[in-house]
Structure formats: structure tokens, C-alpha cells
């Protein structure tokens, strides 16, 4: 069904109103969470969505796998409109979602059973379920824990099991709604690494919603939400060079970008938007001479 002309996600003039009801169930008012969003995501991209609490990003995310339906406008996932009831199950299989709290998403007593739950539910033959479980756990680096009880895992490991559960449905797109908010530094690193790997190796479109600016640095494209609309969009460099504007939107830029910004303000002639520590070192000290050094720098993208 997918051809290279079908965008993974296409959103046109999306409006979403939450309806507030009083004790008798009468409509007491509406709150507009999304006020006219247009958005286009090509298959295979890694997209980050940033925005302060209440900016509408989670509401937007829920439209991407038809957990919410447009009040006005249209959302197409892989060419299928979410407003059309008959597309529902196909959309939810193609666009899987991972939420903030790993403990709310894991249901089985054993890791591999949890991952197999989704495929089993849609009637995948048993043998294929096990193949999918194995591949999914491998993809997130959790294969060795397949027989464990989920409550023996760390937060980052649990979150990777949640991601494996989504991958087992063979989705074309995964939406991660603040998947690292509750994790320790190592857990955060593991989850982001797993997401990048899926994107790179399996070509799965990744949509990452996050409050950690550093996690968005390697995205192909960033969308910044504010008051229910897309306030900024562009590459990480285009977005993060606007330090003041990001602060206005209650956000931030990566610390190393901020440092570069401060140094420029102090009069150092370095490039405008530094995104990684390696870039800053190159800008200040010149590019490293030996090729061996470069390799080492590429290994760790923290």
C-alpha cells in the first residue's frame, strides 16, 4: 500500500476541542487544544516534537494513532484518514504508541509474553508470534531478558520492552510520548539509542515527543508546538539557533548550544549554532588532525 508518494503522516487544518461537561452531562464549555495544525512527515524520518506542558503535543500525538479524532480537519496515517472508522485497526497497527510510564504499559508476567500480546490479539499464527517476539526483543537489545519478570527490570529496560511490544505489530511508525521522562540517565540513553536504531536499520518512522532538548539534536526535523499550533519547524540547527525564541516558548536549547551562544556573545568568532561538544571543540581548536581521534568522537553521542 505504501509507495514513496504517500506521506507517513499528513495533517491538514487539524482542530481539536476537548468538551467539558457539568455534573448532569451537559456541555459546559470547550477547550481548544489544537487550533489548526498542518504537518507532513515523510516515511523513514526521525521527527521530534517539542513544546511546553499544555502546548498540545500529547493531544497531537493521540491523533496520530487514532486515539482521538479531529473536531475539524483531517489526519491521514499512511494515506488512511483517522476519521474513517474502517481504518481504525489498520492505523493503530501501523502507528504504535509508547507512553511515559513504563509500568502502565506492561501487562504480562514474563517479558516475552508481554511482547507477544499484541500480535496474539490480532490473530498472528503462534509460530510467527515467536519469530516476531524474538526479532523485536533483539531490535531493542532485550533478548537476553526474555524470560524475566518485567518488574525485575530497570525503567529503561521496561520502556524498551514497551517499544518491543509495539515493534512486534510490525508498525511503519512509532510515536514515543515522553518515553524518557521517568528514567535515569542510563535508561534515557538506552531508549533513545533503541529508537534511533529502529529508525536507521528498519526504516521505521519515529516521532519523539520530549522535554529533553538534547534528545532532539539528531532528529531530521523538529516541530515546536505552542498554544495548539506549530510555532516553529525546521532542522535542529535552525530551531536551536533561536535561543531567545525557544526561551519565550518556555523551552530551552541543549547546554552546549547555550555555551556556544554565550561565547559568541562574548565576541568569539565561532559558528552560530553548535549542537554537539565535538562541534564546539572543532570550532574553538580547529578540526582534529589524526583520523583515529575522529572515530572515537563519533562513538558516543551523549
Amino acid at each position: 500500500m505504501l509507495n514513496r508518494f504517500t506521506p507517513m503522516i499528513k495533517i491538514q487544518k487539524l482542530i481539536h476541542d476537548y468538551i467539558k461537561r457539568d455534573d448532569e452531562g451537559n456541555v459546559a464549555g470547550t477547550v481548544r487544544a489544537i487550533g489548526g495544525v498542518d504537518l507532513h512527515v515523510e516515511p523513514g524520518r526521525f521527527i521530534a516534537i517539542l513544546g511546553h506542558n499544555g502546548s498540545g503535543k500529547s493531544t497531537l500525538a493521540k491523533h496520530l494513532n487514532a486515539l482521538l479524532f479531529p473536531t475539524e480537519g483531517t489526519v491521514w496515517v499512511d494515506g488512511m484518514s483517522t476519521s474513517d472508522g474502517k481504518n481504525l485497526w489498520e492505523i493503530r497497527r501501523e502507528a504504535g504508541m509508547v507512553f511515559q510510564n513504563p509500568d502502565n504499559q506492561i501487562i504480562a508476567q514474563v517479558v516475552e509474553e508481554d511482547v507477544g500480546f499484541g500480535p496474539e490479539n490480532i490473530g498472528v499464527p503462534t509460530e510467527e508470534i515467536w519469530t516476531r517476539v524474538e526479532e523485536s526483543l533483539k531490535a531493542v537489545g532485550m533478548l537476553e531478558h526474555r524470560k524475566k519478570s518485567p518488574n525485575r527490570l530497570s525503567g529503561g529496560q521496561k520502556q524498551r520492552v514497551s517499544i518491543a511490544g509495539v515493534i512486534a505489530m510490525e508498525p511503519k511508525c512509532i510515536i514515543l510520548d515522553e518515553p524518557t521522562a521517568m528514567l535515569d540517565p542510563n535508561g534515557r540513553k538506552e531508549v533513545i539509542k533503541a529508537a534511533k536504531k529502529l529508525n536507521r536499520e528498519k526504516g521505521i518512522t519515529v516521532i519523539l515527543i520530549t522535554h529533553y532538548m538534547e534528545e532532539a539534536v539528531d532528529a531530521d526535523m523538529i516541530f515546536v508546538m505552542d498554544k495548539g499550533v506549530v510555532a516553529m519547524q525546521g532542522t535542529p540547527r535552525e530551531i536551536f539557533c533561536q535561543v531567545e525564541r525557544m526561551k519565550e516558548l518556555q523551552l530551552d536549547v541543549p547546554q552546549v548550544t547555550l555555551l556556544g551562544h554565550e561565547l559568541r556573545k562574548a565576541g568569539l568568532a565561532i559558528p552560530d549554532c553548535i549542537l554537539t561538544k565535538e562541534e564546539l571543540a572543532d570550532a574553538l581548536l580547529g578540526a582534529p588532525e589524526a583520523a583515529g581521534e575522529k572515530e572515537e568522537a563519533d562513538g558516543d553521542q551523549s
Binding site: H52, N53, M182, H211, K247, Q250, L251, D252
Partner: peptide
Amino acid sequence: EPTAGLDPRGR
């Protein structure tokens, strides 16, 4: 963890 889940300004 008083800042878990908050945006940068909230933090």
C-alpha cells in the same frame, strides 16, 4: 523527582 515530566521552564 520534583521536576519529572515538566517542561524546561517548569523545571
